[in-house]
Simulated assay, not measured.
Amino acid sequence: MRSCWFGAALVAVSTVAVALTVNPLPAHAPLAAPPVALAATPDKAAGTTPAVGAGGVVVARYAFNGRAGSIIDESGRGHTLRVISGHGGAVRRVVHGQGSALAFPGRCTARVCPHVALQTATSSADLNPGTRNIAFGAEVMLTPGQTSKGQNIVQKGYSTTSSQWKLQIDGAAGRPSCVLVDEKRPPIRMATSSVSVADGQWHSVECRRVATNLFVLVNGYLRGRTTIPAKLSITNDRPMSIGGKGAYADNDQFNGALDNVWVQIG
C-alpha cells in the first residue's frame, strides 16, 4: 500500500465519459451545501412524500476544487481527506460545472487491479450519528460499462466488524442503495433505488435516516425506502472513506467520478 496525492493538472478520463473535458480548469465554484432543514421531497413516480425532519448540522463536505495537497473539509470540522492507494491506483481531477470533480480508476477484471480511496486520517465522534437522524450524499457519474457487483461512494464503518452508514451503487443495473448497520444488532438495513444512475450523466444521490425510515433519493426524488428500528445506533472508531473501503483488493472500488460529497447529522 502507498499514499499518493492528486496534483493541479487535469487528466483525460476516457473510462468515465466523453463529456468530461480537461482544459482549462474553470474558476472555483462554491459547494452547494445540502439543505440544513431536510425538506419533504416528492416521489416523482409514486407521488408520495417521505416524512422528514428539520434541523441538522453539516459535519463534512468536499467540493474537490483544491489545486493540490490534502482534500480539505469545507464544513470547517477538520475532516481532511488523504488519498490511499495500491497497485497504481489514483484519483484524477476532471472538470464538472464551474469547478472540478474526482475520477476514480475504471472497472478492472484482472487478477491485480488499481485501488484508491479517500479517507479521514482518524475517526471523529461527530461523524457518528448514534441514534440521531443522518443524511449523506454526493453527485455521481458512472457509465453503463463501469458497473460492478458493488461500488462504495461514501461510508463509515463496516457491516461485519462494526456499525455502519454507507451509500453505494449496486449491481450491473447501477442502482444506488443506502445501508445502515446497528452497533449491537448486525442485520444490514438497506434501501435500494428503483432507478439506475449508470447512464454517463451526472446525478445527485442521497441517503436519509429519519426516525424509523431510511430513504434513498436520486436527483431530489424519493426512489426507495425501508423501515429501521428506532434505536438503531451507529457509533464506531473507523475512518470515513470515499470511493472505496480502502486500498486493498476487496475494497468495492467506485469506478466513476464523484463531486460534492457531504454528511449532515441531526
Rank of each mutant, 00 (worst) to 15 (best):
F136S: 01
G137W: 05
A138W: 09
A138N: 08
L142M: 07
T143E: 12
T143Y: 05
G145Q: 11
T147L: 13
Q151T: 03
I153V: 11
I153T: 00
V154G: 10
Q155W: 07
G157V: 06
T160H: 09
S162Y: 01
W165Y: 11
W165F: 08
L167I: 06
Q168R: 06
Q168A: 10
I169S: 11
G171H: 01
G174W: 07
R175A: 14
R175T: 14
S177M: 06
C178K: 09
V181Q: 07
D182N: 13
K184W: 07
R185Q: 12
P187D: 10
P187C: 01
I188L: 11
R189K: 14
M190F: 02
A191P: 09
V195M: 03
S196D: 11
V197L: 00
A198N: 02
D199C: 02
G200Y: 10
G200A: 04
W202L: 03
W202G: 04
S204K: 03
V205C: 06
C207T: 05
R208Y: 02
L214V: 11
L214M: 09
F215L: 10
F215K: 01
V216D: 00
V216C: 04
V218Y: 11
N219R: 05
Y221H: 15
L222T: 11
G224I: 13
R225D: 07
I228V: 15
A230P: 03
T235S: 15
T235Q: 13
N236S: 15
R238P: 00
R238F: 08
G243P: 06
G244Y: 12
K245R: 13
G246E: 01
A247K: 08
